[in-house]
């Protein structure tokens, strides 16, 4: 029931400002049968709580395209760390959804391997290079070619990637992450509802025009953007594709308020997917959000 007494259907998309066009989603093609419209996950280790959700954008639902975002997370059992990856397949790539999923899988595999070899230090550029190599191998199989060139790999599987690890520490969890492309990461201060971007944003209020510069795997720059920090007691680490980051902007609007409210404590994973699927005109890209909290003594929702 809404505040004005009008019956609202359960699970109706949450409108934030002016909603977009209403329609029934079209199915993606046969080749995307393993990419559901939405997916979510959630669990806790001894020290950390994770939630993630990924939902197909209105544009892909309308035009019968698959969700091209992906997210994966896995615990590193010996250390209690959370290893994560979020990817946004480049829309011009023929099988962007596969590129995004493979980049996430490859990143997790490599980070787990590094943690097994040398728990104290991570080489995140090596992780990005491994993800690029896995895309190249995937392209080789698809093209039946031993050495596909980078443009062929990009044409099939180009994707952004944010990946890293959150490790428990007596002074507070330590975050290490890197990114290729324009997907974002933020530290949400739950008390003040302030979002602090970990990396520069393409839609910040100080930019006159939105940047069209695209950096994506399989290209890996000589210097990969990286960040390290500690997760404060009232902070939530957020990793999101631009389907989330663009409407969030600087975080001081209604989208920012919605997520600050909903992420005050870890929500049920299905509820996070529902909230992430909010309806706001012109923001119709796929959306993916991964969040990590210090584990609270209180049971999560």
């Amino acid at each position: 029931m809404s505040p004005n007494g009008v019956e609202v259907p359960p699970w109706r998309r949450i409108a934030v400002g002016t909603p977009g066009v209403e329609f029934e989603a079209r199915p993606p093609g046969e080749e995307a049968s393993d990419v559901p419209d939405a997916e979510c996950d959630g669990w806790s280790t001894a020290a950390l709580t994770l939630r993630l959700a990924s939902v197909r954008g209105a544009q892909h639902r309308y035009y019968g395209k698959p969700r091209q975002d992906a997210a994966r997370a896995v615990p590193h059992q010996p250390s209690g760390a959370v290893v994560f990856a979020v990817a946004d397949g480049v829309s011009s790539a023929v099988r962007a959804e596969q590129g995004a999923a493979e980049a996430c899988r490859a990143a997790l595999d490599r980070i787990l391997l590094q943690l097994a070899w040398s728990p104290a230090s991570l080489d995140l550029r090596d992780v990005a290079l491994h993800a690029a190599e896995r895309l190249r191998r995937l392209a080789g199989v698809r093209l039946n070619k031993a050495e596909p060139d980078p443009t062929e790999v990009a044409a099939l599987y180009a994707t952004t990637l944010v990946t890293g690890v959150v490790r428990p520490h007596p002074d507070g969890p330590v975050v290490e992450l890197c990114r290729i492309g324009d997907s974002g990461a933020w530290l949400l201060d739950g008390r003040r509802a302030v979002y602090r971007p970990v990396f520069p944003s393409k839609t910040g209020s100080d930019t006159l025009l939105v940047s069209n510069e695209v950096r994506a795997l399989p290209a890996v720059p000589a210097t990969v953007e990286q960040a390290t920090g500690r997760l404060g007691p009232d902070q939530v680490l957020l990793i999101g594709t631009d389907g989330f980051g663009d409407p969030l902007g600087d975080g001081d609007g209604r989208v920012g308020a919605l997520f600050a409210d909903q992420l005050a404590t870890p929500p049920a994973p299905l509820w996070l997917a529902h909230v992430l699927d909010f309806d706001r005109e012109t923001f119709d890209d796929d959306r993916t959000l991964l969040a990590v909290w210090r584990r609270s003594p209180a049971p999560p929702r």
């Binding site: 544009q59 035009y63 091209q68 946004d88 397949g89 480049v90 829309s91 011009s92 790539a93 180009a158 994707t159 952004t160 492309g181 324009d182 997907s183 939105v210 069209n212 695209v214 994506a216 594709t241 631009d242 389907g243 663009d246 012109t282 923001f283 119709d284 890209d285």
Partner: peptide, 11 residues
Amino acid sequence: GHALNSADPRL
């Protein structure tokens, strides 16, 4: 328009 608001906003 399809390519706007994506990881690959291009003309």
